[in-house]
């Protein structure tokens, strides 16, 4: 690996490193949110930044790095982006609905909302 990174020209290494650091920071913030936010309905938003911008930055870095090392365009990371875009929303929707129905079943209903639909009250755990 060290040999490969030495063959990479400087003008390409700089964006690769920037994207990697940026992606790492974003994924870290996502994890921090998952750990520290007080209730479930807030925690579900934290991983969203990791899977979009975090994963996106790391995939761009990967494309740049391997294109530079192998001296040809490497773009199959785009597939990962597409599959993440297709699957992650389904997961978060399923988890969200499961949580909402569980809370409504157990009577944690927010009657303050003037809506035709009932939502669960957001209690901090």
């Amino acid at each position: 690996m060290t040999d490969a990174i030495e063959t990479l020209p400087l003008w390409l290494s700089i964006p690769v490193v920037l994207f990697l650091v940026c992606g790492g920071i974003i994924v870290f913030i996502g994890g921090l949110g998952l750990l520290r936010l007080p209730n479930f309905y807030q925690r579900i938003h934290a991983p969203a930044i990791a899977i979009t911008f975090g994963a996106g930055s790391i995939l761009i870095a990967s494309m740049l790095y391997f294109s530079g090392v192998e001296s040809r365009p490497v773009i199959h990371e785009l597939l990962i982006t597409v599959f993440v875009f297709l699957t992650a929303p389904v997961t978060s929707m399923l988890i969200m609905r499961a949580a909402v129905y569980r809370d409504l079943q157990s009577g944690k209903v927010d009657y303050a909302k003037p809506s035709s639909q009932r939502f669960p009250v957001e209690a901090d755990e």
Binding site: H45, A48, T52, F85, L86, S92, M93, M96
Partner: peptide, 22 residues
């Protein structure tokens, strides 16, 4: 629309009411 909304951080789709499309 659900893919866009759920991929955008800060919003999560809960459900679509079948009769009123709310």
């Amino acid at each position: 629309l659900s893919c866009i909304i759920n991929t955008t951080p800060g919003t999560v789709w809960v459900e679509l009411l079948p009769d009123t499309y709310d």
